[in-house]
Nucleic acid binder design. Structure first.
Length: 527
RNA sequence: GGGCCGCUAGCUCAGCUGGUAGAGCAACAGACUCUUAAUCUGUGGGUCAAAGGUUCGAUCCCUUUGCGGCUCACCA
């Protein structure tokens, strides 16, 4: 029964096969992801989540039972104040605190970490991602890992030797595999002095010089350092797959040491996969992290519908770097997605190998794999859609009236798409791409000769615009220019000025047709 | 210093389990006197970074070199 040949060459399917091969046939596979919510969770962090989600989906499609966990490492230390957070002076006072004890200066949640977490948890369902969240602060503070910390303490030398393998400065003899937040100040500026061989730890608060002995079964203040914490949790949850950024997956990186430390805890390392970072293109001055602004999933979803956001990640191997674009490339991305969709529905012929690949990408791009569209989207180029939207000043329903043949499901998808298109037009589109039809009383100052030419075109439009094809009508445009002894270039400029107060605009014949006879005639007749 | 990734047409890149190369844009020619990265048709263009090796056969696997980038060796 497991002999079913899966022909898919998609990386998610290949990875799923690899997990099954390396971990054996299991009743339950656990796939994990996780990050530290030390600031706004940006789109680069999303790559890890979606990578796991796709592998989870691939495993489930192979009939496997899968647990998808997402660990919030919210008991990590608050190291620096991100520049995009309000009230930095206040946050400054909480440096070295665990992020779960830092206040949320945005007023969205009970604490800093939670605010960042909530933003993600609220939006992930929109892109079809439903993990089980684990909160490490809550667990550590409830001494959930007390026995594991004790285990680490018992294997202090062994762990130190593993970590020292890749360190330039070996850890000192006095080092202990545990970190303590001071119960006096909440900060991690402490030094562990001793362990009693059981559950008692004595530490010194380095700022105050005070010492204290705490019981790891009762204190909320202990945690394991990252390179021990990670492998410990692999064992705790039985993790079979967890990807990592290239900072983790390099020789001497945390995966390297963790795969050895995990043996101390009696387990083995999960199958992993390295993902590269995501770049941002065309996001104005908001690109650099030094400016403090980060691009998160909300920003991307403003411009791309959920399935296209997924498509960006599905279609790129995780190990390749790619850029999410907010500039004119957006048009190409939409067109690429539409091509993939046409291939899926057989509307576009390509060779079989390519077709299989594209179909799989299309399936995995859908937010609900049990509810994949049964018909393609309404076939209209994104560029054209942008023009329609601008003609109707962003009124989505008015645009839809122009597509009476669209089905309900197509209209639903168009609504989402137009909302994105409109946001893109307003926030990111280059000026030359944008226009607005002139309103009442807003006239181009035309001379008599120009007025005559405009009127002639108005008359032609009144009679023929809706009946003739684009190509046929463009003949009239040239004819009108000729009749009025105007150069084509001048005539085009005149019409654009009359309609949208610009020298250039969308390809004229199709633009006029998109505007519709009534609008065109109404505006031109004002002259 | 270690490790990883990349080097394929003018540009951006596909090509992934080895069978002597592809798509978009650009260029050129024509179609319609043409406007906003406008439309259609057609054409040209690559010693697959270099040198060795394995193989019947290498862009693909191995070794070395060059160039570019990233990352670790602090913390998470």
């Amino acid at each position: 029964m497991s002999e079913i040949q899966n022909q898919s060459t998609h990386w998610a399917d290949i990875t799923a096969d690899k997990i099954i091969r390396e971990k054996g046939d299991k009743a339950l596979y656990t796939c994990a992801s996780g990050i530290t919510p030390s600031g706004t969770v940006h789109i680069g962090n999303f790559r890890e989540i979606i990578t796991v989600e796709l592998v989870v989906r691939a495993l489930r499609e192979k009939g496997k039972n899968v647990r998808f966990i997402y660990s919030w490492d919210d008991y990590d230390v608050f190291r620096k104040v991100p520049k995009n957070m309000p009230d930095p002076e206040k946050l400054e006072k909480y440096l070295r605190f665990p992020i779960t004890l830092v206040p949320d200066t945005t007023g969205r949640a009970e604490n800093y970490a939670r605010a960042n977490e909530k933003a993600v948890e609220d939006i992930l369902p929109a892109v079809g991602v439903f993990p089980e969240y684990l909160y490490q602060a809550e667990r550590y503070r409830a001494s959930y890992y007390a026995e594991d910390i004790k285990h680490a303490l018992e294997h202090r030398d062994e762990i130190r030797n593993i970590l020292n393998e890749y360190r330039t400065e070996p850890l000192p003899e006095s080092w202990w595999p545990v970190a303590v937040f001071s119960s006096f100040t909440n900060k991690d500026t402490t030094t562990v002095l001793d362990w009693d061989g059981e559950y008692g730890i004595t530490y010194r608060d380095d700022e105050l010089g005070k010492t204290e002995t705490i019981d790891i079964r009762k204190t909320p203040n202990t945690k394991l350092p990252w390179r021990i914490d990670w492998p410990m949790r692999w064992v705790k949850e039985g993790v079979d797959f967890e990807p990592g950024g290239k900072d983790h997956l390099t020789e001497g990186g945390s995966y390297d040491t963790s795969k050895n430390v995990v043996k101390v805890f009696g387990g083995e390392a999960p199958v992993t996969m390295r993902y590269d970072f995501v770049q941002i293109k065309g996001h104005g001055g908001k690109i650099s992290s030094s400016s403090g602004d980060v691009v998160d999933l909300y920003d991307v979803l403003e411009v791309y519908p959920p399935e296209i956001v997924r498509y960006l990640f599905v279609g790129t191997r995780p190990s390749s770097e790619f850029a999410i674009s907010f500039d004119l490339d957006v048009l190409k991305i939409y067109e690429d997605y539409d091509n993939t969709e046409r291939i899926y529905f057989g509307l576009m012929k390509v060779n079989e190998k390519k077709a299989e690949k594209e179909k799989r990408i299309y399936e995995l791009s859908q937010i609900d794999d049990k509810n994949i569209p049964t018909e393609p989207g309404y076939q209209i180029p994104f560029r054209h859609l942008c023009n329609y939207l601008q003609i109707y000043s962003g009124d989505v329903e008015k645009v839809l009236e122009r597509f009476p043949d669209a089905t309900e499901s197509q209209k639903e998808r168009l609504r989402v798409r137009m909302k994105c298109a409109w946001t893109w037009l307003e926030k990111y589109a280059p000026e030359e791409f944008k226009f607005a039809l002139r309103g009442d009383g807003d006239l181009y100052e035309a001379d008599d000769k120009e007025k005559a030419a405009i009127m002639e075109l108005a008359d032609f439009a009144d009679k023929y615009l809706d009946e003739l094809s684009e190509k046929e009508f463009s003949e009239y445009i040239y004819q009108t220019a000729k009749d009025n002894e105007m150069e084509n270039a001048d005539f085009f400029r005149l019409i654009y000025q009359a309609l949208i107060a610009k020298d250039k605009g969308p390809k004229l014949a199709s633009f006029l047709k998109a505007c519709g006879r009534d609008r065109v005639v109404e505006i031109l007749r004002r002259y």
